[in-house]
């Protein structure tokens, strides 16, 4: 398989952002890759660096065969769909306007409404009136309107009930089967591993583990790693 995204030795270390100390990672076309790790491990920083929203100190990012550089808008147009932590839907735009504002040529509202039927009923509601779950669906749908090759999803489970989280993550399978690769940053590692093909474990800015998401060994290590990070295994 060709790597759609290939990150080599990425170092980010500026200001208040969590630093990354040499992260390497690959995402293949049509694949769902989970990026798991505790709060502060650098997951959001990695996604923001991919979008060009934080400066990179060193390392190389190849996307679709060429280096990924330039301002965020040009990266979005090259095929990165960004769904940020906290959703950040445009509060004063309606659901439909939120989707249309991100639309690339050939994008269709119907595709998004089919994927997330609740949005279709709320199409004229302003963003600020939506529930957390609706906002998350809208943020994912909005990223898809740009017809990305790779969807970057930052903590979609944040603030959602376990049921809603499962429903949302289950949608990622449908998205990936349309040929869109997904890089899913999640604190909720158990849920992320359920839906992903492969996973990387990030800890304090380093990739410390990776493997098939179905691998029981990896799952075991992730579980223990998270428990120890929370200081719960000492007793």
């Amino acid at each position: 398989m060709t790597a759609l995204l290939d990150i080599a030795d990425l170092v980010v270390g500026h200001g208040p952002v969590t630093a990354l100390h040499g992260v390497s990672l690959r995402v293949n076309s049509g694949e769902i890759v989970a990026l798991v790790g505790a709060n502060g491990a650098g997951k959001s920083t990695l996604l923001r660096a991919l979008m060009g929203l934080v400066p990179v100190t060193s390392g190389e990012i190849m996307f679709d065969g060429t280096p990924l550089t330039g301002p965020a808008w040009s990266r979005a147009r090259r095929g990165l769909g960004y769904c940020p932590e906290g959703r950040r839907v445009f509060p004063g735009l309606t659901v439909e306007e939120n989707l249309n504002v991100a639309a690339a040529p050939g994008a269709s509202l119907d595709t998004v409404y089919k994927l997330f039927p609740p949005l279709a009923n709320r199409r004229d509601a302003p963003g600020w009136q939506l529930s957390g779950g609706e906002q998350q669906m809208l943020a994912v749908g909005r990223a898809l309107m740009a017809r990305p090759k790779l969807l970057l999803l930052d903590e979609p489970s944040l603030g959602l009930s376990p049921l809603l989280t499962d429903e949302l993550l289950a949608r990622l399978r449908a998205i990936a089967s349309d040929g869109v690769a997904v890089l899913l940053a999640e604190q909720n590692a158990a849920a992320a591993l359920e839906v992903a093909d492969r996973a990387y474990v990030l800890h304090l800015g380093h990739t410390v583990d990776d493997g098939s998401a179905a691998d029981p060994g990896l799952r075991q290590r992730v579980r223990e790693g998270i428990l120890s990070a929370k200081g719960l295994t000492s007793g």
Partner: peptide
């Protein structure tokens, strides 16, 4: 469409840029 982009930029500039605006 320009109006939508103008409003989106006013509401969250960084997000607007990350969507290709």
């Amino acid at each position: 469409a320009l109006g939508r982009r103008l409003r989106a930029t006013a509401q969250d500039r960084e997000m607007a840029e990350a969507l290709g605006i």
